[in-house]
């Protein structure tokens, strides 16, 4: 009964290993091991350089932001498969609007695109009780198709310098903007998950929906909220793609949903709801970026990268599963 009390406190590694539920913290172990292996074998290829480290952060920022929001979705025992498509759609909406109407309308339109799709997802799940898996699977195709349709498959360049600076192109001195976005998202996510009533309600809804409802929690509203948040976060990620790559394209974010979900699960959030580990999610996301980066430095082809990445994800998730 007492063993559960020390989980969040730092302790000696041996104590951590024996007393903690190490399976739910597999991500930290995996992260350190892979990092050390890459440092040894790829050190001469520039793996450890500051620039490369910052690159990993830059490349994973969009995944991290979507994954923080996805942590809430999965903690509430729902899923959002449409995040990658929403990011693509938001990137073209924001790019087109910025070009036509200027900076502020462009930003508003981008976020609105994600909010609308998120609200539709949430509304269908909360009101019509359609499983989120099906709703967002449909939305994955719908949003991607929409993005391709309204742009006639053409890239939408962004020439607004301020936009590019805000959304990931710029640096704050030595600190890349993408790092700032990541830190803000993670800090906000952690605070909301662990220190607000909303976070508790999300965990309760995912942990035992009947008990949550008996306690007076409006679980339908919670489900709506997490999917709305996920849509908005995906839109911001799409805008970061647009800013960093100075254009909106329907392909941005394609397939990200799998990376995002893998990052969240690797981070220790239960796929069955009730648990949400924001810091774990950050490391899950960085882990995905780390592997990408290492495999590229190691000179693997894209096809080989996919195979290795898939195998590593399966292994880590299998290890993190409780008996």
């Amino acid at each position: 009964m007492t063993s559960a009390t020390t989980i969040t406190r730092p302790a000696l590694v041996s104590r951590v290993m024996t007393r903690l539920d190490w399976r739910s913290n597999i991500i930290y172990i995996a992260f350190v091991i892979v990092f050390i292996l890459f440092a040894i074998f790829l050190g001469s290829d520039g793996f450890l350089s500051t620039n490369n480290m910052l690159n990993i952060v830059r490349q994973t920022a969009t995944i991290s932001i979507m994954a923080v929001a996805m942590t809430f979705v999965i903690a509430a025992a729902e899923i959002d498969l449409s995040v990658g498509s929403i990011a693509g759609l938001a990137s073209v909406v924001t790019a087109m609007t910025t070009t036509q109407f200027g900076l502020v309308p462009g930003i508003v339109a981008g976020i609105l695109a994600g909010a609308i799709i998120g609200a539709i997802n949430g509304g269908l799940v909360a009101l019509l009780k359609v499983p989120s898996f099906l709703v967002t699977l449909g939305m994955l195709g719908l949003a991607a198709g929409l993005a391709q349709w309204i742009t006639s498959s053409a890239p939408q360049p962004i020439t607004d310098r301020i936009y590019v600076m805000i959304f990931g192109g710029g640096d704050f001195g030595p600190v890349p903007g993408m790092l700032v976005w990541t830190v803000v998202a993670v800090a906000l996510g952690w605070l909301v998950m662990n220190r607000t009533g909303f976070g508790r309600k999300v965990l309760a809804t995912g942990g035992n929906p009947t008990a949550a409802a008996y306690t007076g929690i409006r679980t339908a509203r919670i489900k709506f909220s997490v999917l709305l948040i996920s849509g908005i976060a995906a839109a911001i990620a799409g805008m970061l793609y647009a800013g960093r790559l100075e254009s909106g394209r329907f392909q941005w974010g394609q397939g990200d949903e799998l990376t995002v979900i893998a990052a969240v699960i690797l981070g220790g959030t239960s796929l069955f709801g009730g648990r949400g580990a924001i810091i774990g999610t950050l490391f899950g996301s960085l882990f995905m970026g780390l592997i990408n980066n290492g495999l590229i430095l190691a000179g693997l082809e894209v096809a080989q990268q996919q195979v290795v990445r898939g195998a590593i994800i399966i292994a880590a998730v299998a290890l993190s599963r409780k008996k």
Partner: peptide, 30 residues
């Protein structure tokens, strides 16, 4: 006290007792 227990297994004892009536501290945080 329900026959089918109505607690959230993944939460702590204290979090369950004050679920949806969380005690607020600084800045309205739990």
């Amino acid at each position: 006290v329900f026959q089918e227990f109505s607690l959230i297994p993944s939460m702590t004892v204290a979090q369950n007792i004050f679920l949806n009536r969380e005690i607020r501290g600084t800045a309205g945080l739990v």
